[in-house]
Every structure is written in structure tokens, then in C-alpha cells.
């Protein structure tokens, strides 16, 4: 699936809820799939009694992965040339995450391919940014 260059303009934007009421079980699923079994994410006893956090919290990479869904749904996973984020705030069980992706600059040509730059930002239910970043996608 490719989005055509002619159908895209600066400022085009989409929004999607990618996590609704994050469960501890989803965090455990991510640990199992990724191989990051850090007890800060998977072990409530350790996270609260030893590390002093209010609960376990999500891997930043889980939030980055969930955020990427809006970009891959829009442009096709095979067309992602670059995807990068900064981790801004922690994500906790019960959080709901909403991603906004926006075309942020002119479409450019690089080695014969049209590329769009997409800004992505994910906020929690309080409106606080949890990750913020950029994707570059190839267009048809």
C-alpha cells in the first residue's frame, strides 16, 4: 500500500487511540515478544517495594511501537524509511494513548523516491506528551 504524492499536503493530519486503558498483561506481552523482561515493567512487587515506583510502567519501546501504528496504517509498514522518537514521560497501567501524525514539511525527492516527513506525538489521557518524534515515508 502506498499513498500517492499528489494526495498529500503539508498539515494533513490523522489521530488514533492506540492504547485504551493499558493493562499490565499487555506490558507482559511486550516483555515476552521483545525480550526485555526488566522487572520494572513486569514485576509489581519489585517495582513498588524495591524500586519505589507507584506501579510497574510500560517499556518506552511499547509506546513507540503502539505509536507507529498510525504511521503504518496510513502509509503502509513497507514504506517506512525512518522512525524515531524521544521518550518524554512514563506510561502507566490504565493509561489511554492517543497519537497524532501530521505531514510537517514539503515532499522531497531522494534517490528517485518521494519522501514525506511526518511528525508524531502521543499523549496520555491527561494531555501530557509521552513520546514525540518523526517518521519518513516513501510515497507512490
Amino acid at each position: 500500500m502506498s499513498v500517492s504524492k499528489s494526495s498529500l499536503s503539508i498539515g494533513d493530519s490523522k489521530t488514533m487511540v492506540v492504547v485504551d486503558n493499558l493493562t499490565r498483561s499487555q506490558i507482559v506481552m511486550y516483555a515476552g515478544a521483545s525480550g526485555d523482561y526488566n522487572p520494572l515493567h513486569t514485576d509489581e512487587v519489585f517495582a513498588t517495594q524495591v524500586a519505589g515506583y507507584p506501579s510497574v510502567f510500560a517499556h518506552g519501546m511499547l509506546t513507540m511501537g503502539a505509536t507507529g501504528r498510525l504511521v503504518t496504517d496510513w502509509f503502509g509498514p513497507e514504506n517506512v524509511a525512518y522512525y524515531g522518537v524521544r521518550f518524554v514521560n512514563q506510561v502507566w497501567p490504565g493509561d489511554t494513548l492517543t497519537v497524532t501524525a501530521t505531514v510537517v514539511s514539503e515532499i522531497t525527492e531522494e534517490s528517485g523516491q518521494w519522501l514525506a516527513t511526518i511528525g508524531v506525538e502521543t499523549v496520555n489521557q491527561h494531555g501530557a506528551v509521552v513520546v514525540s518524534g518523526t517518521a519518513k515515508v516513501t510515497l507512490a
Partner: peptide, 15 residues
């Protein structure tokens, strides 16, 4: 592994 990883990030894309 790809299927399990996609499930873990909550992404149901059949691709």
C-alpha cells in the same frame, strides 16, 4: 515472532 510482537504493541494490521 513478528505476529507476537505486533500483538504486543496492540497492532492488528494483517500485513
Amino acid at each position: 515472532h513478528i505476529m507476537m510482537f505486533a500483538r504486543a504493541i496492540g497492532d492488528p494490521n494483517p500485513a
